[in-house]
Simulated assay, not measured.
Amino acid sequence: MNLKLLGEVFVTLLVIVDPPGMVPVFLALTGTMDSRARMKAGTQAVLLALGVIVGFAVAGQTLLDYLHVDLPALQGAGGLLLILVALQLLTGKADEPAEQGGTTNVALVPIGTPLLAGPGAIVATMLFVQRAEGADEYLVIGIGILLVMLTVWLVLRFSGVIVKLLRPAGIEVLTRIAGLLLAAIAVQLIADAIDAFVQLYINAP
């Protein structure tokens, strides 16, 4: 097994996904849920993120080429989606009790994507796949992705301990802070997408 490649994939994706940084947003979106619903939301989010990343690793470039979509467009779309979620957190709408099926919705968007399976993780995975030579390296990349998702799941799984310590008032404060951080991430994603588009068209033949 190529341990160097495994380490590169694991460290790169772990830094991009940033499990500790995910905790405030995850708690802000699931703070009103009971522990069972929160665990279910975390599991669903990780499974969706795993499916999206593996899907793009296998057929991402082909899909984007078919749709005539550049990677910066994907990045910009993720940023716009995060802005909507950030506004909900900042205005307190995310604190309202979830309707039936709300757990699944929160798990899918925005936790599963674009927070976990965002443009950064997708692009990094696609680049690793393009560099891979042979089935053994594809397998190593797959193992690296699985290890990262397992790490994320463990972090989200035990985030309930933080909820017990913070109590409702602490969760409310954390929600506002998470909204502000999420808005900053969204603006950065959009700015990076604009910069990438400018560079793309400047360098176009």
Score class of each variant (00 low, 15 high):
61 Q>T: 11
55 G>W: 04
166 L>R: 02
193 A>N: 06
162 I>N: 01
17 V>E: 06
114 P>I: 01
97 P>Q: 06
97 P>I: 03
55 G>C: 07
183 A>H: 10
19 P>Q: 08
46 V>H: 05
177 I>K: 06
65 D>F: 04
134 G>R: 07
190 I>V: 15
193 A>S: 14
52 V>G: 04
196 A>E: 12
121 A>R: 00
157 R>L: 13
23 V>E: 02
4 K>I: 15
200 L>K: 14
128 F>R: 06
204 A>H: 15
115 L>A: 02
164 K>F: 09
93 K>C: 07
31 G>T: 01
189 L>T: 03
16 I>R: 08
78 G>T: 05
59 A>H: 05
193 A>F: 03
144 G>H: 06
15 V>R: 13
66 Y>E: 09
27 L>F: 00
33 M>T: 09
29 L>D: 00
3 L>E: 12
143 I>K: 08
64 L>R: 00
105 N>D: 13
130 Q>G: 10
169 A>I: 13
20 P>M: 09
196 A>G: 09
70 D>M: 12
1 M>H: 11
60 G>M: 00
75 Q>A: 05
122 I>C: 00
60 G>H: 02
176 R>F: 14
148 V>P: 01
94 A>R: 01
35 S>M: 13
18 D>R: 06
1 M>S: 12
137 E>F: 09
149 M>S: 04
25 V>P: 00
164 K>N: 12
150 L>T: 13
110 P>C: 03
2 N>Q: 11
7 G>K: 10
72 P>D: 09
99 E>S: 14
193 A>L: 04
201 Y>W: 15
178 A>L: 10
161 V>I: 13
89 L>V: 05
74 L>M: 13
23 V>T: 10
119 P>Y: 08
65 D>T: 12
1 M>D: 10
109 V>G: 03
148 V>M: 02
201 Y>S: 10
166 L>N: 02
129 V>F: 03
